[in-house]
Design a protein around this nucleic acid. Structure first.
Length: 287
DNA sequence: AGGGGGACCTGTGCGC
DNA sequence: TGCGCACAGGTCCCCC
């Protein structure tokens, strides 16, 4: 589920629930996710006011009063659900009884507005930790990240520089969060398809005109996905309060054996494995 | 030093 | 129906 657009959709969905609210009660129902929760995690959060929610790559940052930040990563299967009464235009399902919590509902946030936000993560690849706002730049998990793909900093010129001398396939290079931060397996496949570039091509061998096309494709595919997430949020009252899922229309991802979507292309979508992960592409129109 | 592969977890879907 | 295996949208750490 969670690449940059999904994390952004989760963030946008939580803004009306959490921003400006006090965390009246926080419960950690186990001591760890992928890594241990910091000592006194729930206690340190309880009573704090949420100032704002931001995002960096696939991380969500919950800025708290007192110069502290709750850093959240959803891993592969992390999700948030919102339970409780109407806030803004969003209608959420009724608050569950305490015994309504499931085995994988690990962290529970109750706000002073009477809403409950539950973090669920059955594979526990997600993480939550606390850091000082002043440490943000230097924090181990954030320090090495490359540019935000939707920022002006991410351009054909900067990408070209990042790929210089890379003897690795472009697919692997784009998954490297130091090159560009926030792409995952799906959107890399989709962006390479839109740009007409083979995922197998060695990163450093892509000419600048095609890099420009790739950068444009990455930005476009992310914007489209965020837009799709946003329209799902607007229809929130029709859903059950689960954040981050929306109807994707992938053109190659998970379409092995299907006809290529490109007009006039007679190709069929192939699946190959690159550094242990599935890559989907059309060998006819991606060169 | 950079890159590939395994490890971390649980759930699901498929073939036999 | 049941069992075992492959696979899942992420990242870290170890080793070459």
């Amino acid at each position: 589920m969670p690449e940059l657009p999904e994390v952004e959709t989760v963030r946008l969905g939580l803004v009306p629930v959490l921003e400006g609210r006090v965390l009246a009660k926080v419960t950690a129902r186990r001591p760890d996710l992928r890594i241990p929760l910091p000592p006194g995690f729930a206690k340190r959060l309880t009573g704090r006011r949420v100032v704002k929610l931001t995002r960096r790559a696939k991380y969500m940052l919950v800025h708290l009063d007192g110069d502290e930040i709750l850093l959240v990563h959803l891993g592969m299967s992390g999700r948030f659900t919102v339970h409780g009464k109407v806030v803004g235009s969003f209608v959420h399902r009724a608050v569950d009884a305490e015994n309504g919590l499931g085995a994988h509902d690990h962290i529970v946030f109750d706000t002073d507005a009477g809403q409950r936000v539950i973090y669920t993560d059955h594979r526990r690849f997600g993480l939550m930790t606390l850091l000082k706002a002043s440490e943000q730049e230097a924090h181990k998990l954030l320090a090495g990240l490359g540019p935000e793909p939707l920022s002006a900093e991410f351009s054909a010129a900067s990408l070209s520089k990042a790929l210089e001398g890379k003897r690795t396939p472009i697919k692997a290079a784009l998954l490297d969060q130091r090159v560009v931060a926030g792409l995952g397996n799906i959107y890399v496949c989709e962006a390479l398809y839109r740009a007409g570039i083979s995922p197998l091509r060695l990163a450093a061998t892509i000419q600048s005109a095609r890099l420009k096309k790739l950068v444009d494709a990455i930005k476009a595919v992310l914007r489209d996905a965020i837009k799709a997430g946003g329209s799902t949020l607007r229809d929130y009252k029709h859903t059950d309060g689960e954040l981050g899922y929306f109807q994707h229309t992938f053109q190659v991802y998970d379409r092995e054996g299907e006809a290529c979507c490109t007009k006039g292309c007679k190709g069929v979508v192939k699946r190959v494995v690159q550094s242990g992960r599935s890559t989907f592409y059309c060998a006819t129109c991606q060169r």
